[in-house]
Amino acid sequence: MATVAVYLRKLADEEQPLRLRLLAGPSEKVLSFVLKENETGEVNWDAFTLPELHNFLRILQREEEEHVRRLRHRYARCRQKMQEALATRTPG
Rank of each mutant, 00 (worst) to 15 (best):
Q61C: 13
S27Q: 09
E39A: 14
V68A: 09
F33W: 00
E52I: 07
Q83S: 08
R58G: 04
V43I: 15
V43G: 01
E39S: 07
S27R: 13
V30C: 06
Y7V: 10
I59K: 14
L57H: 12
R21G: 02
L31H: 07
S32K: 14
E84D: 10
A5I: 02
T3E: 14
E37P: 00
H67I: 01
R21K: 14
I59E: 15
N44L: 06
Y75H: 10
Q16L: 04
E28S: 08
Q83R: 15
E66Y: 00
R9L: 06
V4P: 01
T88W: 13
E28Y: 03
Y7S: 09
H54R: 15
A47P: 00
A12S: 14
N44C: 07
Q80F: 05
A24S: 12
H73L: 11
E14T: 10
R19W: 06
L11I: 10
V68P: 00
L31I: 04
E42W: 02
E37T: 13
E84K: 07
P51Y: 06
N38C: 11
A87S: 13
R58W: 05
E28K: 13
A5E: 05
K10R: 14
M1E: 09
K10E: 05
L86N: 14
A2V: 12
E64G: 09
R69K: 11
T49L: 00
R72C: 03
R70G: 03
V34P: 00
N55E: 14
R69H: 10
P26R: 05
L53N: 06
L35Y: 04
K81N: 11
H67Y: 01
E15D: 02
Y7A: 01
M82I: 14
L60Y: 12
N55D: 09
K29M: 05
L18M: 07
E28N: 12
